[in-house]
């Protein structure tokens, strides 16, 4: 279980609170939706859950233990803008295989074509780049996935496609999934449970 207990966070000492006493838990195999207006710390919470930021108070635990400080993180975050999550000076093959070598099956499911692997990031569209970001996050050691507005910038067709692949993996491998989105229809489609962040 991925568990956040009484998380509080602010970026600067004396700055405004971004998160205040937030708690949530995701079971393996569960799809939880997180909805809140912009500026309520959804992205910050996602970064804390995936170990990008340490919470100021409270704790994040994975099956009772804190997140590992080094090595592959079992909680992987997928960003809204794939072009920022990819080194612009690397070819796509190197980008894809930075963490592990994804199976041919996963690439086929995501519709990643062999010809794309030799390209530079700026030669691919946002929808194509996001497929690579998803492939990288679904490593063998991944247990939980945080999808922060993962398909907000994509067209409906690519959105439906990527979610089908992710949901399929979640079910088969019993991964936990947190879907951060403001699209109520999308959350309704994907999630068994929807939580929202209170206004501070």
């Amino acid at each position: 279980m991925l568990k956040a207990e009484q998380i509080s966070f602010r970026y600067t000492h004396n700055g405004p609170w971004i998160l205040r006493d937030v708690s949530l838990a995701i079971e393996a195999g569960e799809v939880v939706g997180l909805s809140a207006p912009s500026g309520r710390g959804k992205t910050t919470l996602g970064k804390i859950l995936a170990g990008y930021l340490p919470p100021l108070t409270g704790r994040v635990s994975l099956n009772g233990a804190p997140l590992p400080k080094s090595g592959y993180c079992p909680v992987q975050l997928i960003f809204q803008h794939p072009e920022l999550a990819i080194n612009p000076r690397w070819r796509m093959k190197r980008v894809l295989e930075e963490a592990f070598v994804p199976s041919a099956e996963l690439l086929r499911d995501l519709g990643i074509e062999a010809g794309w692997l030799n390209r530079w990031p700026h030669e691919l569209s946002g929808g194509e780049l996001q497929r690579f970001a998803v492939a990288r996050a679904l490593g063998p050691a991944t247990r939980y996935v945080i999808a922060d507005e993962m398909t907000t910038m994509l067209d409906a067709n690519t959105q439906a496609h990527i979610w089908q692949v992710v949901l399929d993996h979640v079910r088969r491998r019993k991964l936990g999934l947190l879907v951060v989105s403001h699209d109520a229809a999308l959350l309704g489609r994907l999630c068994t449970q929807i939580i929202s962040l209170p206004h501070l």
Partner: peptide
Amino acid sequence: LWRALPQNEFISLPGAQPT
């Protein structure tokens, strides 16, 4: 595209736009 919307059938078309 219409059918792929989450409020509709949420099914996608295989393949990708040609480069």
